[in-house]
Design a protein around this nucleic acid. Sequence first.
DNA 1: TTATAAATGAAAATATTTTTCATTTAATAT
DNA 2: ATATTAAATGAAAAATATTTTCATTTATAA
Lengths: 143, 143
Amino acid sequence: MRLSQKKIMAVLRQYGYRLTPQRRAIIKTVVLSQDHVTPAAIYDKLHQGQPNIGLVTIYRTLEILTRLGLICQVHAGGGHSYTISASGHHHHLICSGCGLVVDFAGQNLAGLEQRLSRETGFKIEDHLLEFVGLCQDCQRDGV
Amino acid sequence: MRLSQKKIMAVLRQYGYRLTPQRRAIIKTVVLSQDHVTPAAIYDKLHQGQPNIGLVTIYRTLEILTRLGLICQVHAGGGHSYTISASGHHHHLICSGCGLVVDFAGQNLAGLEQRLSRETGFKIEDHLLEFVGLCQDCQRDGV
DNA sequence: TTATAAATGAAAATATTTTTCATTTAATAT
DNA sequence: ATATTAAATGAAAAATATTTTCATTTATAA
């Protein structure tokens, strides 16, 4: 289940952030995008429109949304970090050909986490699990 | 088991790369480093010494070593990607306080990989599993 | 409406990575 | 040993990415 635009805006408000037209537009873009988007891609898509949005605002908004857990970053694949909207605990399957990101869940890492905690003394706060491969389309197209 | 300096150099030679003093110095730095190192950190450590090493050479060498699987990148934690030497298939446990990287193995993701492949049609090539938390020292120091 | 703290965006600063190309050099052949 | 040559280096510039600063605008609440 992906977060809706409405839900994201509600959470923003809940935390005392203002709902500016810029933020609405950025959220809309991230939510409507099927795969992950870079700050630059959002900028390209939005900065001609109304309102005119600066790249700085995009960085700032993505930072807030990430901090609130409303969007998350994709690390593998290109190597750089991209963002994608999603909700609940899940992981990413990333196409190295076209950048498509598929969310998946159902992998319970609690056991492993406990083992690691026990063996290393770490207090584990977070984890990152991503698979990289070729989606069906890219396999067919021989990317 | 971490790769030794000698082993890394042998593999480099095996693939037809030349063993320059610069490459030796870079490999030594990465191997001796307990945690992950950034290109900039390697540069700071080496560019005063003999031989004088340029940042470009560091980027190029790290790229080769990564491609040959002799070192690998760390994605989570700071957000940027860092490199660390290691061998064999393993994953990372990263301290968000001090950057310490602990390797761990023994997590077999083949079953999950198969499931995802079946469900999505992806041809999976690689994966990334990282845990982030606080190491014992940083817990104590209240970082 | 008005007041005001938050948000914006242009510009500059900072940081990161890649490209170019003349020069140097490691490894091979002699 | 020495010469040869393709590979490697590094300075500089270019390209890319991100953050900071600060004057101006604006969403929200009083």
